[in-house]
Each structure stands twice: as structure tokens, then as C-alpha cells.
């Protein structure tokens, strides 16, 4: 059971980090960013290029993944989402735009990085073996710790910085925030950039463990949406809770249902359907949005 808990925590940390960026963008702009998974893949490929192709240290690749995706997110918000939101009040306009960006990024990734699975060497060798009760490679522990550290930094940034407070105000009431002098356009762009940056960082972190390939974007987005549905869309703490809950369900399910074939995700989806029927706004979301 210790191993299952350790696996669940590790999975939960990486899932929560994926979901954070998605929920941040949703809370600030009411945009379902279907391209979030592709941003994660792009971040992974940036780290791969920096580390495996250019031979630079992993931390440089990770920082560059964050910066590249942050800049990409800011540009996407400023030149794509902002004009569409200004001209259209229909929510599906932004959804279609997000889906279009996902396809576009898939094509860009294919052109820039190719179609093959890519990976980088282990960043630390060795395995923690606690009396065969918990077996966890050191690189997974490091990535888990870095993911949790990134979550903590993000929460503190949102809680205590001027930008974080402005974004929280924006998320609570866009009109009131504007009336109080918050530069809505600027902070929307910063928020989108931050969400994309988180996707890039998690892609960079996981390329050292799972590798990266073009096809990983879609499934990553689906899991991220599941997490924010569990926790409550647009709620930071909900995304974190959703990530850890999904990670733990996956870890426990894979052990408990091992003898019955791959029914873990079937059970998770069934549970999610029942849960949403009872509580459609998720664990921490509010019925009014």
C-alpha cells in the first residue's frame, strides 16, 4: 500500500501542475483551452532540444520551456483570443479558436521536432528502495518535489504578489476589477502566459521521465479537463485537489483492478459521471460559476 500511495502522490503532483495552467486560463478568461496539451508537448520538445540536441543542462531546458511557452501564451492571448473575445459574445467562438490552435500547434510541432518519440537521459541515477515497501527512482522523486515546489510557488505568487491579487480579482469579477482600476487586458495576457508557462514547465519536467511525442497533447488535455471537473473549473485549489485525486485513483485502480484487465479508467470515468450528476460544479466550484 505504501508503494501505491507513493505512486499516487507522484502522479498527483504532475497532474495537478498540468491542471493548474488550464484552470487559471479558464478562471481569468472563461476560455476552455483545448490547446493546453499541445502546449505541454511543445514545452517537452523545447527541453528535449536544449538538453539532448544542444547538450545544455536540464535546468536550462526547463527554464527555456517556461519562457518560450510564456511568450507563446502571451502572443496567443493578445493576437488571437483578445480580438475574438472583443468581437464575439458566444462562448463557442473561443472554444473553436482553442481547438484550432491545438491543431495548429500539432502541425508546428510536427514540422519543428518531427513525429518520433523523444527523451532525454535520466537526470539522476539510482532508486530509493525502502525495504521493498516503496521503490521510487530518485529522478521521479526529484520531479515530484519540483512539481510540488512549482505548485507552492504558484500559490504564493497568486496569494501575495500584486499581479496575483489582480488576477484573482479578475477571476472573481471582471467588471468590478476593471472599475477598481485593474488593467484587464494586461492581466489577462499575463494570466494566459502564466498558464501556458505552467504547461511548458510540466512538459519539460516530464520529458526526463516519460519522454515526449506528438500524440501526447490530446490525452493530456483530456486528463487536465477531468481534473478541473473533479475539483471545480476555475478554482486553483480545486485543480490541485483534482490532480491528486485522479493520480491516487489511477494508482489504486491499477493495483486493485490489475487482474481484470484495463478497467481502471473505465471505473474512473463511471465514477466521474456519477459524481458530476450529483455535483456538477465539482468539489470546490460554486453552482453559480
Amino acid at each position: 500500500m505504501e508503494q501505491v500511495l507513493a505512486n499516487g502522490l507522484y502522479l498527483g503532483a504532475q497532474y495537478a501542475l498540468i491542471a493548474l495552467g488550464l484552470t487559471l486560463i479558464f478562471s481569468l478568461m472563461n476560455v476552455l483551452n483545448f490547446a493546453h496539451g499541445q502546449m505541454y508537448v511543445f514545452g517537452g520538445f523545447v527541453t528535449y532540444t536544449v538538453v539532448a540536441q544542444l547538450g545544455l543542462p536540464f535546468i536550462v531546458g526547463l527554464i527555456l520551456s517556461g519562457i518560450v511557452l510564456g511568450v507563446m501564451g502571451a502572443l496567443i492571448e493578445k493576437y488571437l483570443f483578445r480580438p475574438v473575445i472583443a468581437r464575439s459574445t458566444r462562448e463557442e467562438s473561443t472554444m473553436l479558436l482553442a481547438a484550432g490552435i491545438a491543431f495548429f500547434l500539432d502541425a508546428v510541432i510536427l514540422l519543428l521536432f518531427g513525429e518520433k518519440q523523444r527523451g532525454i537521459p535520466k537526470i539522476i541515477d539510482g532508486v530509493l528502495n525502502w525495504d521493498y515497501r516503496i521503490i521510487m527512482p530518485y529522478d521521479r522523486i526529484l520531479i515530484g518535489v519540483l512539481a510540488i515546489a512549482a505548485i507552492c510557488i504558484f500559490i504564493m505568487y497568486m496569494q501575495y504578489s500584486k499581479t496575483g491579487r489582480a488576477m484573482r480579482a479578475l477571476a472573481q469579477d471582471r467588471v468590478a476589477a476593471e472599475l477598481m482600476g485593474v488593467d484587464v487586458k494586461y492581466y489577462s495576457m499575463i494570466g494566459f502566459a502564466l498558464g501556458a508557462m505552467l504547461a511548458g514547465i510540466v512538459g519539460g519536467l516530464l520529458v526526463s521521465i516519460t519522454g515526449i511525442n506528438l500524440g501526447m497533447g490530446g490525452p493530456a488535455s483530456i486528463k487536465a479537463f477531468m481534473m478541473i471537473m473533479i475539483g471545480g473549473a476555475g478554482i486553483i485549489s480545486g485543480a490541485i485537489a483534482g490532480g491528486f485525486i485522479l493520480g491516487m485513483m489511477e494508482s489504486v485502480g491499477l493495483l486493485v483492478f490489475a487482474a481484470y484487465g484495463d478497467i481502471t479508467y473505465l471505473m474512473i470515468f463511471v465514477s466521474l459521471i456519477i459524481f458530476l450528476a450529483i455535483r456538477p460544479h465539482g468539489l470546490m466550484g460554486k453552482p453559480w460559476g
Binding site: Q3, V4, N7, G8, Y10, L11, Q14, I135, M136, R140, L206, I209, T210, G215, M216, P219, A220, K223, E250, S251, L254, L255, A258, A259, Y260, G261, D262, Y265
Partner: peptide, 18 residues
């Protein structure tokens, strides 16, 4: 012979444990 996994799995440790 009963253990399976999703192709988009990001951590195979829980899959391979049993």
C-alpha cells in the same frame, strides 16, 4: 497475463508493480 495499460500512460510504475 491480465495487466494492461493506456497508451497515454505517463507513469508505468503502478502498471508494472503487480
Amino acid at each position: 497475463d491480465s495487466v494492461t495499460y493506456q497508451v497515454d500512460t505517463t507513469d508505468f510504475t503502478p502498471v508494472l508493480l503487480p
